[in-house]
Write a protein that binds this DNA or RNA. Sequence first.
DNA 1: CATTTGACGCCAA
DNA 2: TTTGGCGCCAAAT
Length: 84
Amino acid sequence: MALTFFEKVLQVVAKIPHGKTMSYKQVARLAGSSNACRAVGNILNKNYKHQIPCHRVIRSDGTPGGYNRGENRKIKLLKKEGAL
DNA sequence: CATTTGACGCCAA
DNA sequence: TTTGGCGCCAAAT
């Protein structure tokens, strides 16, 4: 597989079911590092694909955090999907 | 190779 | 409750 953390994160995020949300910590954990929460955010920021539901990835506090397309976009999508 | 960055997480004050 | 600071990680420059 030789997947870098970068690839793993994308795969994990892509696995998030519709109407659900995961915290960066959870994603980082599944990606292989329990505390790479920072790296996860950084990766998603530089590599946002509409193929990747990055808007389903939020902070542990429940706050949406940020989004390349605008936080508003993220919040809207989550509400629409019923994640909130 | 060394340094910087960043959509974070958790704790203490 | 809110703010500030520290820790941790991987990619980018």
